[in-house]
Computed example of a mutant assay.
Amino acid sequence: MKTFTFIKDKGTRVFGIGKMNPLDVSQAAIIEMKLEEIAAMKLKRKILDMKFKVSEFSISINDCIATVKGIAPSQEIKEKIILIVGNSVGIDKVEDLIIVKDKSTESKFYTVREKDSLGKIAKVFYGNPKMYYKIFEANKPMLSHPNNIYPGLVIRVPVANGMP
């Protein structure tokens, strides 16, 4: 099992974890449990709506740690699922239990920093800012436009010709 770390307070607002003002500890624990179950269902639906063909797919969330399981057809699909889940507000780690049928090279994960652009990231990894489109394409459908990145977002940077 591999664990990926994310920034819990950054990302897509898929659910309400972390937004609660608990009245009492026991009630708060029950409410948090329910929120985590709802969040896991919403994330699963979001991933299935993206037409990723993952069999035996499940997500569970406990204490801001998401565990993803299933059988993915490719390394790319596996990585995209990890990023969709991890880039959701309220998730701070993703435990990866996804099995890949067709193994290929793993992409690098990169956390976007202040003043980053896909061009700047491409220059660092590939030596050419014009190769930003490779990173953009590798992050579809999570990114709808090359400028839709923000600090704290974790993205895939595919290996190209032995790089990065």
Rank of each mutant, 00 (worst) to 15 (best):
M1K: 05
M1Q: 01
K2D: 14
T3L: 00
T5P: 07
T5L: 12
F6Q: 05
K8C: 10
K8E: 15
K8Q: 13
R13S: 08
V14Y: 15
G16T: 13
K19W: 12
M20P: 02
N21I: 11
N21R: 13
L23W: 12
S26G: 08
S26V: 12
A28H: 01
A29E: 04
M33Y: 12
K34N: 14
K34I: 10
L35K: 09
A39Y: 03
A40Q: 06
M41H: 12
K42D: 04
L43N: 02
K44Y: 00
K44A: 10
I47P: 05
F52R: 04
K53A: 09
K53H: 11
S58P: 14
S58E: 05
S58T: 05
N62K: 11
N62W: 15
D63I: 03
A66D: 03
T67E: 12
T67A: 13
T67H: 02
I71W: 06
I71R: 10
P73N: 11
S74I: 02
Q75C: 00
K78D: 02
I82W: 05
I82T: 06
I82V: 13
I84R: 02
I84T: 05
V85I: 08
V85C: 02
N87I: 01
G90Q: 00
I91W: 04
D92G: 09
E95N: 14
I98E: 11
K101G: 14
D102I: 07
D102T: 03
S104E: 15
S107N: 14
S107K: 03
K108C: 04
K108I: 05
E114W: 12
E114R: 11
K115R: 07
G119M: 07
I121N: 05
K123R: 05
K123P: 07
P129V: 08
K130G: 10
K134C: 07
A138L: 00
L143G: 07
H145N: 11
N148D: 12
N148C: 09
L153W: 02
L153G: 02
V154I: 14
I155V: 09
R156S: 12
R156W: 06
R156I: 13
V157L: 04
V159S: 15
N161R: 08
G162D: 00
M163N: 13
M163S: 13
P164G: 11
